[in-house]
Design a protein around this nucleic acid. Structure first.
Lengths: 356, 356
DNA sequence: CTGAAAGCGCTTACAG
DNA sequence: CTGAAAGCGCTTACAG
């Protein structure tokens, strides 16, 4: 690997290394002649100059140094389980893809660190002290203990997705309340009035927030507020008197649409609904989720949870923090959008008459 | 961030920096007194010494240097699509988790790089020349063009998962042929004789390899070799005369089990099968896949595709290559295993009589 | 604006 | 085994 350095370029052009450096680390106080600047850039490009990360990090690590580099950020994936090969979380990958994309624009790269038990925090500590990262993105259940650890190591950090810490932190998340509202709006705009809500659970914050948003928007969009239309599948597995399908059939009058905020729920129930004879076959299904694998559920209308956008914005925010910029708003929310998939349509005319 | 260096430790103990260094970079030629070694280690630990990655990389980057570091490896995720937020591939994350785990044991970390178009290879090139990475793991459709690029940058690399290049490379993959064989064995051992095979497609290598394995093992395990029992769902969407369910019902005699190598296919069809009256309700379903999200399809018996193990072994192999060890076998295959989920059982007695 | 020097923490090469 | 020196490529601080 032939390494081209700043001093090579300087020698080539008969300039000093300081001038070359000034081109690659623009300092507002130093103003190079545009002509010189241009010459340096072309020569650097021609010679294939790439700044050496390790050298820069090392030089900048000098004590009492305020300037920082930003070419390596760490993504901490917090998980509950210990097993190294447990549950694969697609949301995590969507966030990573967004973050990596944005970081690559900033000429930085993303290091992935999975933290499942307290022992794994050593990895984070080591990497920090080894000077391996310039900041952290966090995804997973970030509680106060996690935040305390992060604070201690002095690097900037941004929390992505749901968080469960009480102290204020910089964070980026999907606007889950808006997800629920959008669901109510979309179905109402198609003319539905009786809409069932099938939650996969109520354990996680996003599940409760989506429900809140839905409930808040229900009335103003003219949806029936009958609470019997709500059900929580996770609570159900325990009692188990009916199947989800039987529950839907037992509602009277029958709903013309169902909102299933969780993609997994919709994926497993929708094929069954389509197979059934009668009214349920025509029921509209609306779900949520982030870019599902090709071929799985493309026919579902869904509210897109823009997780990759969360990653992008998180990277940008971290960059601003690392550069020492003042950032006021601590919490950033990304709006969801609707993706037509064909599983929602107006209620069939006979039905809409009945339910009015 | 107070940085503790080797010379701090040396001064503290009244030794030379060389001795301290010898503890952290064991050199077979240099033999420290065990007593000294121990003192250095305890003091280093007490002072919280962590080797500074950037400094080490920089020092080792000296020209004509044969020794290499191994603390940063890159994972290239090759994708077809340009969009930064397209399709989320759970297999990629499973591989990453395995690789990250293994690398953390080696005190190395993993940098994620997504490469979708040829423009993205700049990122790889930059990172290589910036000295940011000691080797590459590759996941995705790695063809000869990809391998040529990798060769050019002189770093060791290992290809994970399916590959489509013709030249020999170091690679780690699941033994897909064994997956197919295991499927045939398992169903045969339960007493099934007529087993339908529903493929999600035949476009990818792993799909063809699983089928090959299945076909090879079918006869010796006593399964019916009727080719009408095979169907490819992707080919079907085009013709579309029947639904998959209708196709199953049309088989005569009806199969008592169905092997659906792709999890997505099984997830969408199984709920429908369970809902149906009659024989199809009792049909055994066997599928494949890597650790699906909790709550989705835990009730399915599946052949586990050990993708995280592929990541682990890939990291280990890369480490050996980077250390300059001689590695002979270029291609490594990881065996799959069966995970009971309750969706396979012996054929109901009446049926098994009929089909014999 | 430019040049020459010192230093970041580690490794290498060489003299004791 | 130990010590003292030079160097990796870059940044900082300071003199011209």
């Amino acid at each position: 690997m032939e390494v081209v350095t700043q001093s090579h370029i300087a020698r080539e052009l008969g300039l000093s290394q300081s001038s070359v450096k000034a081109v690659f680390n623009p300092d507002p106080r130093i103003r190079l002649r545009p002509e010189t600047r241009r010459r340096i850039l072309t020569t650097a490009h021609k010679m294939g100059y790439v700044p050496h990360h390790a050298a820069r990090r090392l030089a900048r690590s000098r004590r009492h140094n305020k300037s920082t580099s930003f070419d390596q950020v760490g993504l901490i994936h917090l998980t509950q389980s210990d097993a190294r090969d447990s549950f694969v979380d697609p949301v995590c990958l969507a966030i990573m893809q967004g973050a990596e994309y944005e970081l690559s624009q900033l000429h930085a790269s993303l290091t992935f660190v999975r933290v499942s038990g307290s022992g794994d925090w050593d990895k984070v500590e080591r990497l920090t002290r080894a000077g391996g990262v310039d900041g952290w993105l966090i995804y997973g259940p970030a509680n106060d203990g996690v935040v305390d650890r992060l604070k201690r190591n002095k690097l900037p950090y941004v929390i992505l997705g749901d968080r469960s810490c009480t102290q204020p932190v910089y964070s980026v998340n999907v606007d889950n309340e808006a997800v629920g509202r959008l669901g109510a709006q979309h179905l109402a705009s198609l003319g539905h009035r009786r809409v069932a809500y099938m939650a996969g659970g109520m354990r996680f914050l996003f599940q409760r927030q989506i429900l809140d948003g839905y409930r808040n928007a229900r009335k103003e969009n003219g949806l029936d507020e009958d609470e019997r239309l709500f059900s929580d599948l996770s609570a159900w597995k325990v009692t188990g008197v009916k199947t989800p399908i039987e529950w839907l059939q037992s509602l009277d009058p029958m709903p013309t649409a169902v909102f299933m905020p969780e993609l997994g729920v919709a994926l497993s129930l929708q094929p069954v609904l389509k197979q059934l004879p009668g009214e349920l076959k025509a029921i509209s299904v609306l779900t949520c989720g982030c870019a599902p694998p090709d071929g799985i559920g493309p026919q579902l209308t869904r509210i897109d949870l823009p997780m990759s956008e969360v990653g992008c914005q998180g990277a940008l925010l971290l960059h601003r923090l690392a550069s020492g910029a003042r950032v006021e708003s601590a919490e950033m929310k990304i709006s969801p959008s609707l993706i037509e998939g064909g599983s929602t349509r107006p209620p069939s005319s006979s039905k809409s008459e009945t339910t009015q």
